[in-house]
Simulated scan of single mutants.
Amino acid sequence: MNGPTLPANIVNGRGQPFDSEREGLFFSRLFAALERRMGEAFARTTFVIHRRAFGEFKGKPIPLGQGDDDKVLIVISDEREVFPVDDYLSYRAVFRAYGFHDLLAPNVHSFPVSYFNAAGEAEPVPFGERETSVFFSGYMNRNRVDLFKQFCQIGWLPRRNLKGKYPKEAIRRMVSKFYRQRSFNDVWADAKIGFTEWFAKGLPPEEYARVLANSKIALCPPGFESHETIRHWEAMRLGCVIISGPLPNNRFYRGSPIIQIRDWSALLPLVADLLAQPDALEAIHRATTRWWDEVCSEEAVASYMAEILAGR
């Protein structure tokens, strides 16, 4: 099933129509808003969206041509932050998702990770009527062992964050083999906490989005590579109070109401305190909704991009 049809000047690195199946709603809304702001200049601009493949730097050339003043490059799916941005500064502007810190290069700018279509179609439940107190559903990768062990009693593991990529993976395999419990709905009243055996093997996207839209607090631990994930954007759009690890120091997160913790051992007392103060919790929800509207929504991102492309 294909995503929404995008304008003809939105292409992939080969100059072909961009495949927007997963994030089609986000991109269609973004470019519709950007066209309104840019006017006739929009049609004169080619937007090249490059979805980085994990194996493309293993001796393989990147299927991406050089740019000019009429081309804008958008790099997505670069969780490892290895795309050679400096090789593509011939584009009018370069926007890239994942981990980028603002102001490191005058021609390079932050870009949203975006959300999947199901979360874009979901409608948020009024906060006071939400039935799920705390929600997480996802694969227990090595970066989420630190979250898992807050819920599961593992006497030989400290609660504090583990260090190092390879030790984390070794611990993940041991925990996955010897500790079979995957659901922890009883940690807090009305919580829905579940870990899956592999990526995309949990709730169907539509059900995931419905539960998220009906949740007060969303836990957003790291993905396979990055602390920044699509679930941050889905939770923001749906007005959840977000608890996350440290996020990049860019315009989308700097000063945001996202609660960032450096160590997941702080999670249980933090959530208990939040749930004990419903008025304060709802205030964070309202701040998150404002942040989405003013900084991270498609309209806000289009305004930010239009100003950059206008040279302001």
Rank of each mutant, 00 (worst) to 15 (best):
P61L: 12
L267W: 06
V241G: 07
P278F: 13
C220A: 15
E228P: 04
R96F: 02
S133G: 07
G55C: 05
M174N: 02
T45N: 00
E35L: 05
L104T: 09
P112S: 07
S133H: 07
E206T: 11
L6N: 09
V241L: 12
K201R: 14
E228T: 06
R22E: 07
A200N: 15
A272K: 15
N141P: 07
E123C: 10
P167N: 06
T196E: 08
A122D: 01
G99T: 12
L89Y: 04
D86Y: 09
K201Y: 02
F111L: 03
F224E: 01
A200H: 14
G239I: 04
G255I: 15
G59I: 15
L219F: 10
F136P: 04
P222E: 11
R182W: 03
T5C: 08
K168C: 05
R237E: 00
P124L: 14
V125Q: 07
G138Q: 08
T288F: 05
L89G: 01
I261S: 02
P204H: 09
P257V: 13
Y166A: 10
A33L: 05
D146Y: 10
G120S: 06
N9D: 02
T5D: 08
G55S: 11
S226C: 11
V82T: 10
N2A: 09
E298N: 04
Q277R: 14
Y98Q: 03
I242D: 00
P278K: 13
F135Y: 13
R142T: 00
V211T: 12
D146C: 11
E121L: 15
E35R: 13
S114G: 03
H50V: 04
E225P: 01
A191V: 13
Q150C: 14
Q153L: 13
L309N: 06
I49V: 15
M174E: 00
R159Q: 10
A266M: 14
P4T: 06
N143T: 11
A235E: 00
I10P: 01
A209V: 07
I242R: 01
L103V: 08
L281E: 07
I308R: 14
E79I: 01
G164Y: 11
P222D: 11
F151A: 07
G3P: 05
E225M: 11
F54C: 10
V82I: 12
A272Q: 13
T229H: 00
Y166T: 12
F178M: 03
E81H: 11
S133V: 08
A53L: 14
Q66K: 15
I217C: 02
D102N: 12
R231L: 08
G59T: 14
S28L: 06
V48R: 02
Y179M: 06
G164L: 12
D87R: 15
F95V: 05
H232C: 08
P221E: 08
F136S: 04
E294R: 15
G120H: 05
R142N: 05
K58C: 04
R180S: 14
G67K: 13
C152W: 03
E206N: 06
S137Q: 15
F135W: 04
A118V: 00
N185S: 12
P7T: 08
V75Y: 12
M38Q: 08
D273M: 09
T196D: 09
Q260N: 05
S176E: 12
R251W: 13
P248E: 03
Q260G: 07
E35Y: 02
